[in-house]
Write a protein that binds this DNA or RNA. Structure first.
Lengths: 226, 226
DNA sequence: CGTCAAGACGGTACTCAGTACCATTCCGGG
DNA sequence: CCCGGAATGGTACTGAGTACCGTCTTGACG
């Protein structure tokens, strides 16, 4: 009976020690020792101490990038929503491992910062994808892309964190609902849905209730003639 | 003629060396030496090498927190928008220093990550403030708070980065416009504007154009009876 | 003017992450 | 059996960050 592969042994040892003594109190030597390997071997499998906890962020980012590049969804926002659902599913598959990681990142600010930086890379990818997709180089379009990306990521994080905290029994359904919420914030423009400009137009609002705030959105809807 | 204060000398030396050799190629010893100070003294003024570049993020965060706590704006989102404008103005006051920092963070990923982590702290603060302000513990409200915070921060970052890149001549006006855009995404609810529930109701949409996506928003508007 | 205490400063020594490099061992094909 | 490459372990180094201690300055007070 041979031992499990080195990479797995290292990860197991690391998580066990982090749970026992805490992240900062655990040295790379400790991890290597428990995994019964040399210190150099640790750094062959993981570039840093942090990477034991976030092993495949790079791989997942590449996967999402490919997904977007081969996407054929109706709108950029829908494509991105679909892509981000993949990320959530990835975490769900990790199961308990994801929750252990969450407990660690909740306690250790250095790890939380790293996690946040990773998420920002997704957001950047989404922003660039949406901006490219819109093909509109104006400042307004650029801001819009930025907002869309931020919303998708925020919605994802919201659902993910709920699940990680054990507050969600059906995160897949929740993320779908959250994405619908986001989609609703950014109604598709007529040019995006194939220049059918002749549908019935109806407008709904309550007078006397921050009509001012609603105006830009209504204006956008109304001005979109063929 | 005495020299400038130690803290200033250290910062000047650090930025000069970062420009000359790059961030990673500069050691703390180098900085201390150029500032004509001992190495220990460097760490008395800055907790880490990175902190020379981001000296007052903590202070600014506290300032924003106070601002929010003493705020009396009409809605949570407006209060947060006002607060975030303060952050932008802070950067504008820094002037060229902010641009030098931006050039550094653009090149050195470790610094970019740190910057992103700081921004995330603002976003968290905003999210908690909005959630508290709404006082609505439901999941939908929680998501809404998350989205609002994300939008405000994204809009701010968008304008700030444009200015840092020299693409904006009037960032103050741009951030106001961007915040209007964000406000427009989140129309105030009736309960927020004083329980006037008896206004005229009108509804507008284009059939055949992602009506599905618009539904949640419309439903929300319609269901808000007294 | 002398004294004393507090703070600023410099220096030393340490831990630990991460890198570079080299020697050894293991293993499969020839 | 032999050879070559891959995996491994060990050693030595750099540099960030921490702890601690001795020294020097400074200013208040008698």
């Amino acid at each position: 009976m041979s031992k499990p592969p080195v990479r797995t042994r290292l990860a197991d040892a690391a998580f066990a020690l982090f749970d026992e003594r805490g992240y900062e109190q655990t040295t790379v030597d400790d991890i290597a020792e428990r995994a019964e390997v040399g210190r150099s071997t640790f750094f062959r499998y993981y570039r840093s101490k942090e990477e034991v906890i976030f092993p495949d962020h790079d791989r997942l980012l590449d996967l999402i990038r490919d997904r977007l590049n081969t996407s054929s969804s109706g709108t950029a926002l829908v494509a991105v929503s679909d892509a981000v659902r993949l990320v959530l599913l990835h975490y769900l598959e990790e199961g308990d491992l994801a929750r252990r990681r969450y407990r660690l990142t909740s306690k250790v600010s250095a790890l939380r910062d790293r996690e946040i930086a990773s998420v920002a890379r997704y957001q950047r990818l989404f922003r660039e994808f949406i901006a490219d997709w819109m093909g509109d180089p104006t400042e307004a379009a650029s801001l819009r892309a930025e907002l869309m990306a931020a919303n998708v990521v925020a919605a994802h994080n919201h659902v993910l964190r709920r699940w990680l905290r054990g507050e969600s029994s059906d995160p897949a359904a929740e993320v779908d609902e959250a994405m619908r919420e986001v989609l609703a914030l950014f109604p598709a423009r007529s040019s995006e849905s194939g220049s059918l400009g002749d549908g019935t137009t109806v407008v709904a609002f309550r007078t006397g209730q921050d009509l001012e705030a609603l105006l830009p959105q209504l204006r956008r809807l109304v001005e979109e003639g063929p």
